[in-house]
C-alpha cells in the first residue's frame, strides 16, 4: 500500500500530523503529476565544454568562496569530485576525449526531485518541495541526524561536520530567491555554451525531445530525470549512455518515498491488532493458570475424601477382626476350661 503523490506532498505541506503515515489519500487511484508550471533545468551534456563558469557563478550567488582550482586548471578533472559544503555544484569530466571525440563533461548538483526522499525521511520535516520546483531546507528545525544525506541517491547533500554550534545540511537551492524575483539561477545565466537552460519543466521536456528528434545521431533517445525515481527537476541529455556519466540508469519510475516509506502503513495495523491479540494471549495464559490451580485443588480435595473413607473402612475392618479374635479366644478358653473340668472332676 503506497501513498499517492498528492497525499504525500499534501502531508509534507501540512507539516505536523498524526502518528500514522498522514497520507490523506493513501490507496487512491489518482495520479498526481506534480505542481503544474513548476520550473526545472535542462542540462545538455553534449554542449558542455567544461569551462566551469557555472561553479564560479554559483559560488558568487551563494556567497561561497571561489572554487579552489581556478577555471583554466584542467588537472581538476583528473578526479571525479562531488558537491561539498562550499561548492554546491561541480563539473566532472567523464570521457577524456583522447580518441578524437570531444571530451564529455557533466555538471552535478541537487536534482530537486519531484518526490524528494530527503523530504520524506526527515523526521522534523525540514525540507519542503515548493510549488515552483526547488526544495527548501529549514535550518531552524534541523537536528542534524543526517538521514537525508543517507537517503539521497545522487549524493547531493553535504554537512558541516566541523561546526559544533549550528551545523547545516547544504546543497544547491536552485537559487530559489532569484527565481521568486523572476531571475534565472546563477549557473543558467553563466553558461556560455547554453548547456543549461532554465524554464518550466514541461517546456524543457518538449525542448529536450525536440533536440533528440532533430539530431538523432547526437543524442541518446532518453531524457534522464523525466521519470527516474519519480522524476527530477534537473533533466539531462547526453550522447553517451547515462551510466557512463555516473547516473542511475534504468532505475524504477516509482518514487523513493513510495518505495522507502510505504512500509509505515503497517504501523496502524500493529497498533490496532497487537493490543487485542496480546491481551488475548495473556487471558489464555491466565485462564490456563486458573484452570490448573482449580484442577489441583479438586484433586487434593478428592484425595482427602478418599483418604478419610479408606481410613474408616480400615478401622471398622480392624475392629471386626479384633472382635472376632476376641470371641475366638474366649471360645478357646471356655473349651479348655470345660476340658480341664471334664478330666479332673471336682476333687
Amino acid at each position: 500500500m503506497s501513498m499517492s503523490r498528492r497525499g504525500f506532498v499534501g502531508s509534507l505541506a501540512v507539516g505536523a500530523g498524526a502518528l500514522s503515515s498522514g497520507a490523506a489519500d493513501a490507496g487512491t487511484i489518482e495520479h498526481f503529476e506534480g505542481y503544474p508550471g513548476r520550473y526545472g533545468l535542462l542540462h545538455d551534456t553534449t554542449l558542455c565544454v567544461g569551462c566551469r563558469s557555472c561553479e564560479v557563478a554559483c559560488a558568487k550567488v551563494n556567497a561561497l568562496p571561489e572554487p579552489k582550482q581556478p577555471v583554466g586548471d584542467l588537472d581538476v578533472f583528473e578526479t571525479v569530485r562531488r558537491s561539498t559544503t562550499t561548492a554546491f555544484t561541480v563539473v566532472n569530466r567523464y570521457q577524456d576525449g583522447d580518441d578524437g571525440n570531444p571530451p564529455i563533461y557533466r555538471k552535478l548538483q541537487c536534482m530537486h526531485c519531484n518526490e524528494p526522499c530527503c523530504a520524506a525521511v526527515c523526521l522534523v520535516h525540514a525540507f519542503t518541495k515548493t510549488p515552483e520546483g526547488p526544495i527548501l531546507y529549514d535550518p531552524e528545525v534541523c537536528i542534524g541526524c543526517r538521514y537525508c544525506i543517507m537517503a539521497c541517491p545522487y549524493y547531493a547533500l553535504s554537512y558541516e561536520y566541523d561546526n559544533p554550534i549550528d551545523p547545516q545540511v547544504l546543497r544547491c537551492t536552485m537559487c530559489y530567491p532569484r527565481i521568486k524575483e523572476g531571475l534565472n539561477p546563477g549557473c543558467a545565466d553563466a553558461c556560455p555554451a547554453g548547456a543549461i537552460t532554465f524554464g518550466r519543466r514541461e517546456d524543457l521536456l518538449m525542448v529536450a525531445r525536440d533536440r533528440i528528434r532533430k539530431f538523432p545521431d547526437r543524442y541518446i533517445n532518453h531524457v534522464f530525470g523525466e521519470y527516474e525515481f519519480g522524476g527530477t527537476s534537473w533533466l539531462m541529455l547526453a550522447g553517451i549512455p547515462f551510466r557512463e556519466l555516473d547516473l542511475n540508469e534504468g532505475v524504477t519510475h516509482e518514487s523513493l518515498p513510495a518505495i522507502g516509506t510505504s512500509y509505515l502503513s503497517v504501523v496502524p495495523l500493529i497498533v490496532t491488532i497487537y493490543p487485542g491479540l496480546l491481551a488475548a494471549f495473556y487471558a489464555f495464559t491466565k485462564r490456563k493458570d486458573t484452570l490448573a490451580k482449580r484442577e489441583l485443588e479438586a484433586a487434593l480435595a478428592e484425595a482427602r475424601v478418599l483418604g478419610e473413607e479408606e481410613m474408616k473402612a480400615k478401622l471398622s475392618h480392624a475392629a471386626e477382626r479384633a472382635k472376632k479374635d476376641k470371641e475366638k479366644a474366649v471360645e478357646v478358653a471356655v473349651r479348655k476350661a470345660l476340658a480341664e473340668q471334664g478330666e479332673g472332676g471336682p476333687s
Binding site: 554542449l47 543558467a188 555554451a193 547554453g194 537552460t197 532554465f198 518550466r200 525542448v207
Partner: peptide
Amino acid sequence: PTAAATVDKPGLKVAYHR
C-alpha cells in the same frame, strides 16, 4: 539576455558563443 526555453532559442551570450 536569457534563453527562450519554449522555442529553444538561446540567449544572446550563448548565441554568440555557439
